[in-house]
Computed example of a mutant assay.
Amino acid sequence: MKKKTENALLGIFGLSLIATLGSLYFSEIRGFEPCEMCWYQRILMYPLVVIAGVAIYQKNGQIALTTLVFSTIGALTSGYHYAIQKIDFFGERAPECGLVSCTGEYINYLGFITIPFLALVAFLGIAVLSFIILKDIKEEKAS
């Protein structure tokens, strides 16, 4: 396995671990109750820590397709959640979201950084790294 692929797997593991620990910090330490959309994002992020950890241990870059699928769905979910929070058109038409409103913003750093934004950045980073791994695997097979 190429060093580039190993580093990308470490990046995926790092990003997913930081995102997982960050979400647990916000809910368990800061006491922010996650909304329904946040739970969907957690469902897609948390397994990536285990998947990437096992892939690093096994030196298996083939897992990149799985991480790409999880992160793409996660990015779409996070992007929609962010749109619900920041764009009136989406926020006014947002479905009811359980006990905690999906339009609520527990944090709003610099006027645009919210929890769904942080998740979106992590999912996009994982998707890019997954794509890099897939490209490397394709190049290895071609040569």
Score class of each variant (00 low, 15 high):
A55D: 05
G98T: 10
A19C: 07
A52F: 04
I126Y: 04
F89C: 15
Q85D: 04
K86L: 13
C38K: 05
D88Q: 15
F89G: 13
F117W: 15
M1V: 00
I137E: 07
F70Y: 13
A94C: 14
P95M: 15
C35P: 00
Q85W: 10
A83V: 14
F26V: 04
L120Q: 05
I84L: 13
N7Q: 09
L120I: 01
L10N: 10
L76R: 11
A52G: 02
G31C: 09
G14K: 00
T66I: 14
K86S: 07
A52I: 07
R42I: 01
G98L: 08
G79F: 08
S27N: 12
S23D: 02
L134C: 10
T103R: 12
T103F: 08
Q85V: 06
L48S: 06
G125D: 00
V121Q: 11
L24I: 08
S16M: 08
N108Y: 13
V50M: 03
T103Y: 14
A52T: 02
F123N: 08
F26W: 04
E140Y: 09
I126V: 12
F26I: 05
T66F: 14
A75H: 05
P47G: 06
F32C: 08
D136L: 11
A75N: 00
A127R: 13
C38W: 03
P47W: 10
I73D: 01
L15G: 10
E105W: 07
G111E: 10
I126Q: 07
E139Q: 13
V128K: 07
A142C: 00
G91D: 09
G79D: 09
L24V: 07
M45D: 02
K138M: 13
